[in-house]
């Protein structure tokens, strides 16, 4: 595809919008100050970290003094004007940064991958409920993530893995197709200091020493010393989520203790376009994080 250089010719040049634009630049809250909820504001790329052949983590400058950082599991609509807009979830955020781990799967993400540090992405959001760390404090948290599903919980895991004692226990199960698909290799190592981390791949390679098999094969190994205080978070592709939830149910974990993050085709992000509706729920408004009981009752 033609590389569209993000709206401006030179990354270093000023990226001011026209006088009369209401895209949200300079507004109080990204994308929301103009009154037009479809307007976006630019955030500069600070650095790009390659994760796999098709995934990379983009860290953006976040005006933290103006706006509190979004949560893991929330998402932004990220634009490359003249190419399009895509829903991308927050993989981590802090006072001065916003991180999104992006898989190259379509026109917009192709365009984002052509960007370099200093370029800007155009965002509106955050949308959705995401994961609130306060919900898990003092509990035994088990996070099971399949593939890119690890991205929306990465910040959540980092938060608790680095704050010993905020949760009573932290288990991380991560499943990938092949060793080449493993995301957040460095973080996975770091997390091991504060969490029991298990990584499995569907198909191993000669140099892969870890477990091989789908993620559900890791569930029986888990210990639930305090079942009353357990919370399970499952994120990943639809089939993975379904079978992983079933695996936890097999272990006697009640549905009420499991949360999932649903992937749908979020488009407008504000409950208008209808693409992410499932029964009476709009994933962009009511999710993407749902209790598993509710999620299972939502039938497409």
């Amino acid at each position: 595809m033609t590389h569209v250089d993000l709206w401006n010719d030179s990354p270093a040049s000023s990226r001011e919008c026209a006088e009369d634009c209401r895209c949200g630049h300079g507004s109080e809250e990204p994308g929301r100050g103009s009154g037009n909820p479809y307007a976006f504001r630019s955030l500069r790329i600070r650095d790009i970290r390659v994760q796999t052949e098709q995934d990379a983590t983009f860290r953006l400058e976040w005006p933290g003094d103006e706006v509190p950082p979004p949560r893991s599991g929330q998402f932004f609509q990220v634009s490359l004007p003249r190419i399009g807009e895509a829903p991308l979830s927050v993989s981590d955020a802090g006072r001065d940064f916003l991180e999104m781990t992006i898989r190259r799967v379509g026109r917009v993400t192709e365009g984002i991958f052509a960007c370099r540090p200093g370029d800007a992405l155009f965002l509106r959001g955050p949308y959705g409920n995401g994961f609130d760390p306060r919900d898990f404090r003092g509990r035994h948290l088990v996070v099971a993530a399949g593939g890119t599903g690890l991205a929306p919980v990465k910040g959540l895991i980092s938060h608790f893995a680095s704050r010993a004692g905020e949760v009573t226990r932290l288990d991380v199960l991560a499943g990938f197709k092949t060793p080449g698909d493993v995301l957040f290799r460095e973080e996975l190592e770091v997390w091991k200091k504060g969490a029991a981390v298990r990584v499995t791949v569907d198909r191993g390679t000669t140099d892969w020493t870890g477990p091989v098999g789908v993620i559900t094969t890791l569930v029986p190994e888990l210990a639930f010393p305090d079942p009353e205080n357990l919370t399970v978070v499952v994120v990943g592709p639809p089939l993975m989520m379904k079978f992983t939830v079933l695996a936890f149910l097999d272990r006697g974990v009640p549905l009420g203790r499991i949360r999932v993050s649903l992937e749908r085709r979020m488009s407008c992000g504000i409950g208008k376009c209808g693409h992410c509706k499932i029964m009476d729920r709009y994933v962009c408004l009511d999710g993407p994080v749902f209790g598993a009981a509710e999620a299972l009752a939502l039938e497409d």
């Binding site: 569209v4 634009s79 490359l80 004007p81 003249r82 190419i83 399009g84 807009e85 488009s267 407008c268 208008k272 376009c273 209808g274 693409h275």
Partner: peptide
């Protein structure tokens, strides 16, 4: 009321 959004050049 559903709609799809796209960009054109």
């Amino acid at each position: 009321s559903c709609f799809t959004t796209y960009d054109v050049t």
